[in-house]
Structures are given as structure tokens and as C-alpha cells.
Simulated scan of single mutants.
Amino acid sequence: MTTDGQSSGVLILAAHPNWRESRVNARLVAAAAGVPGVQVRDLYALYPDYDIDVPAEQRAVEAATLVVLLHPIQWYSMPALFKLWLDEVLTYGWAYGANGGVLQGKDVWLVATTGGPESSYHPQSYNRYFFDAFLPPYEQTAALCGMRFLPPLMLHGANRASEQEIADHAQVFADRLRTYPQWPELDDLEQCPACVVPLTDRPGNSPGTR
């Protein structure tokens, strides 16, 4: 699933703790691998020991114009290795803050699945919130780095999706990758300026420890 060559186009960061049991994400990765100009990095295959090669990951992101975050939603967020990737790769002075801004102007696209159906993400159902309520951490991560957060591609109810629904979803994903950046909706999305982070708020500059 992992391609280590560099690409100036689309980078897919794929993270699934158990690909053998994946009904949808594995199909999406396979569909993406057949699209020219797409680089797929399977984080769990690359880093089974969670020892992330930060310079390699930064090079891969720096070479891309579209960064795709592909993963199942777990506990209303991303898998653990993906969170570690964010912690270690998106560093101050590179991704954001003084002397940062390497990611400024790039696009980021969340492509994710949920086990529960869309109807479960409702104030009157067991997830209690519309799914959009769980997106701010993704949106603000993009904004901090000056990246444009594109409308997510979601498949809700992945546990019970039919084979046809999964095949159709994978086809939509592949088609979108092939046509990027000629997406009509992008004309109405403004680029996001990087958030200004005061020097006093930079890591290691605050008194005491958190």
C-alpha cells in the first residue's frame, strides 16, 4: 500500500490500525493507488513501532499540493498513530509560527468513514451531535498551517454498507483525485492565511510546564 516516491501532486496519508478488517478504507487506498500523480503513505505499515521518520514525512508533505487524511473515525477523532504524526511532523518553525509556513496554500482533504450511520450523528441519537461538530480540530489544524480545508468525503455506516455502496464510494474518490484541482466548489473556497502565533506562545517559551 505504500509508495515512497515523491509526488508534486496528491499525497494520501492513510492510517488504519487493522487493514485486514477494513471494508472501505482498504478499497479507497487501492483505488487511489491506480491514479497517476498520487503518492500513498500507509502510516501503520511504515511505522509499526510508532517511530516516525519526521524528515521523510515533511519532505512528502512539502512536495504535495493536496494532502489527503484517509482514516476511519475512532472515538470521534483519528487513529492514534495519525495523531502522533500530527504531533511530531507539524512542528513549530516548519508547519506554523515564525519561519514556518511551508504548508501555506496547500489543500487538505479529510476522507473518512464512520461505523454508525449518518442518522446517529444527531442531537436526538446516541452520538448527540451532527458530525460537523467533530470537525473543528481538523479545520483549525489546517488553518494554523495556512492550508485550505476542503469539504470532507465521508462514508457513514461503513460497517453495514453494501458492496455496491463501497464500490461506488471508491469510484467517486478515485474520480475526485483524477480531476483535482478542477473541482467546481473550489472556486468558492478562499485560501486560508496562516494563523499568526506570537513568539511568547511558541513551544518552550512559556514559563513552567504544561
Rank of each mutant, 00 (worst) to 15 (best):
K106N: 02
G208R: 08
T3R: 15
Q104I: 08
L199H: 08
A31V: 15
D42C: 15
D188L: 13
L86C: 05
T141G: 00
E185W: 08
A174G: 15
M154F: 14
I12K: 10
L46I: 08
T3L: 13
R178I: 03
L84H: 07
T141Q: 01
E88S: 12
L81W: 03
V111W: 04
F130K: 02
Y121V: 01
P36G: 12
V111S: 15
L189F: 04
A161F: 07
W94F: 07
A158Y: 04
P17R: 12
G97N: 07
I12G: 11
T2C: 08
L144F: 01
Y44K: 08
Q124K: 12
Q124G: 12
D87L: 06
A15F: 01
M78H: 01
P198V: 03
G146C: 02
V89S: 03
D53E: 06
Y96W: 14
N205Q: 15
A64F: 01
A45Y: 02
N25A: 09
P181W: 03
E62M: 02
A142S: 05
L66A: 10
Y96G: 04
C192R: 14
R27D: 14
Y129W: 10
M147R: 10
L186F: 05
R148E: 00
M154S: 02
Q74N: 11
G157E: 07
Y121P: 02
G100L: 06
L66K: 08
L46M: 12
A31G: 15
D175R: 04
Y76K: 00
D132S: 02
V111M: 08
